[in-house]
Simulated assay, not measured.
Amino acid sequence: MKKTKMIILLVIVIVCVVFLGNHFINRYIAEKKIDSYIEDYGISKEDISEENYPLFGFSPNSQPGFGKGIYTKDDGDNYYIFEYDKKNDKIDVFANVYGNEVSMDDKLFKELKHQPSDKVLP
């Protein structure tokens, strides 16, 4: 009986390690793609005052994938959200402007200092 419990525990540990390993590999790939996109977007490392890259996403309502929040020195409490969608292999950009989460098409987004470069515009 003790041997059976140890085997079950070992299987559970292996499954957890595989899932966490896969998560961190995907997270690493997503972070590299997001960082490349931010560079193409036109926000330099010198303009960034703070980066938030949560372990499992920004909120339960976030799409599957990974996101990174960027605070810049020029935008005060407003910040940019770059989300990587693994399924479609693309980056979506949002911003939190005056407490409202808005897409790039919204007029509030235009109030931010850093606007998207031609490299990232559709």
Results as ranks from 00 to 15, higher is better:
13 V>D: 08
68 K>H: 02
81 I>D: 07
44 S>A: 07
57 G>H: 00
38 I>Q: 10
78 N>Y: 03
49 S>C: 09
108 L>K: 12
41 Y>P: 14
55 L>T: 00
103 S>W: 06
110 K>W: 03
92 D>W: 12
5 K>V: 06
40 D>M: 04
96 N>W: 02
78 N>Q: 02
3 K>E: 15
31 E>N: 15
85 D>I: 13
109 F>H: 09
3 K>W: 13
10 L>V: 12
45 K>M: 07
43 I>P: 05
38 I>H: 08
119 K>G: 09
105 D>S: 03
67 G>A: 05
78 N>L: 01
58 F>T: 01
87 K>I: 12
110 K>S: 14
72 T>L: 09
98 Y>R: 11
85 D>R: 02
28 Y>D: 12
70 I>F: 03
14 I>P: 11
35 D>H: 01
14 I>K: 00
110 K>M: 02
46 E>M: 10
5 K>C: 10
115 Q>Y: 09
14 I>E: 09
56 F>A: 01
103 S>L: 01
116 P>K: 13
65 G>W: 01
117 S>H: 13
38 I>W: 00
82 F>V: 00
83 E>N: 10
16 C>N: 15
75 D>H: 05
24 F>H: 11
8 I>Y: 08
122 P>N: 15
58 F>Y: 09
105 D>I: 00
74 D>A: 14
50 E>R: 15
96 N>R: 05
33 K>D: 09
38 I>T: 08
110 K>G: 02
90 K>S: 04
15 V>S: 13
42 G>A: 03
64 P>A: 06
26 N>W: 08
36 S>T: 15
10 L>Q: 06
111 E>L: 15
106 D>E: 12
4 T>V: 15
104 M>E: 15
56 F>I: 00
26 N>I: 07
90 K>L: 11
88 N>Q: 04
6 M>W: 09
69 G>R: 04
25 I>M: 12
18 V>W: 09
86 K>R: 11
93 V>F: 04
69 G>P: 03
84 Y>V: 07
117 S>E: 11
103 S>M: 00
83 E>G: 07
107 K>E: 07
120 V>E: 12
41 Y>H: 12
17 V>A: 15
40 D>W: 06
16 C>F: 14
24 F>T: 07
95 A>W: 00
106 D>I: 04
57 G>C: 03
121 L>Y: 14
95 A>L: 02
24 F>P: 08
60 P>N: 00
105 D>F: 05
98 Y>I: 05
12 I>E: 06
83 E>R: 08
94 F>K: 13
61 N>H: 04
121 L>G: 10
118 D>W: 13
91 I>A: 09
9 L>E: 04
46 E>S: 14
31 E>Y: 13
86 K>D: 06
66 F>N: 05
29 I>Y: 08
39 E>H: 11
13 V>K: 10
9 L>S: 11
104 M>R: 05
88 N>Y: 03
73 K>G: 02
106 D>V: 07
52 N>F: 10
87 K>M: 03
